[in-house]
């Protein structure tokens, strides 16, 4: 699917309340197509909630969401690869079974690519999820997301719990597999320092509100700082 629209996701006045607590307070943002967008913010800033709303896992309390210019429904989920922060796999499944299950559910899953990435990540596909470490589970999530030929990949803290050496390896493979002509990535992370070189666009979120957003290079030039330093300045 070639990206034809300027924005892959459009959020207009998106609000979300959890048991009286407002997690998102009117988010207005357009996420550009064909770019890697970094979603940066401290814990509890609303990053995961925002990503879950875009992926269709959580319903906004108010506002309007458009993905590829359309209202999100189950059909559109075939075009979105979502990688949550938590382990969402059936722990009795092996890696091979999860890959096979995903293959049967999505029209755009590439089994050969999944097999190649599994080898690259040094994972034994016969291992059961319950026997994997947090870092290994993180790699399995990445295999599933990267093996799909989808126009939108959403990653919620993909580097959490993974050792520094593997983080670099994962980021490298992520960028190798990414195709800017056909894909957009939204990535939330605490590891701003390691990931910021890949960001084309940055959104700074705090207390459910957008504090700053813009083209990553423009922000760096304007402030004469790295994204990491800008985030320190924004979240003081």
């Amino acid at each position: 699917m070639e990206i034809t629209k300027n924005n892959v996701v459009e959020l207009k006045n998106i609000r979300k309340k959890y048991s009286g607590v407002e997690a998102l307070k009117g988010i207005n943002v357009d996420i550009p197509a064909g770019k890697i967008t970094g979603l940066i913010g401290p814990n509890g800033s609303g990053k995961s909630t925002m990503l879950k709303i875009i992926a269709g896992l959580t319903q906004a309390t108010g506002g309007k969401l458009e993905v590829f210019g359309k209202k999100l429904d189950y059909n559109l989920k075939d075009q979105i690869a979502f990688l949550p922060e938590i382990n969402h796999f059936y722990d009795w499944m092996t890696i091979a079974e999860i890959i096979n299950f995903t293959n049967t559910q999505f029209s755009n899953f590439d089994s050969e690519k999944a097999s190649d990435i599994t080898d690259f990540m040094n994972l034994n596909s016969e291992m059961k999820i319950k026997n994997l470490s947090k870092g290994m589970v993180g790699r399995v999530k990445l295999i599933l997301a990267m093996s799909r030929n989808v126009p939108l990949i959403i990653m919620d803290e993909p580097l959490a719990g993974i050792d520094p050496k593997s983080r670099a390896q994962i980021l490298e493979s992520l960028i190798n597999e990414y195709n800017a002509k056909t894909q957009s990535i939204i990535l939330s992370t605490h590891e701003v320092l390691e990931a910021e070189k890949f960001f084309d666009y940055a959104i700074f979120l705090e207390n459910g509100k957008i504090k700053l957003e813009g083209n990553a290079d423009d922000l760096r030039k304007e402030k004469n700082k790295s994204i990491q330093d800008i985030s320190k300045e924004v979240f003081i």
Partner: peptide, 13 residues
């Protein structure tokens, strides 16, 4: 078990 994340991301009614 949080596996609802997997079910709700499927393109299935």
């Amino acid at each position: 078990d949080d596996t609802i994340y997997m079910l709700l991301t499927l393109p299935s009614p």
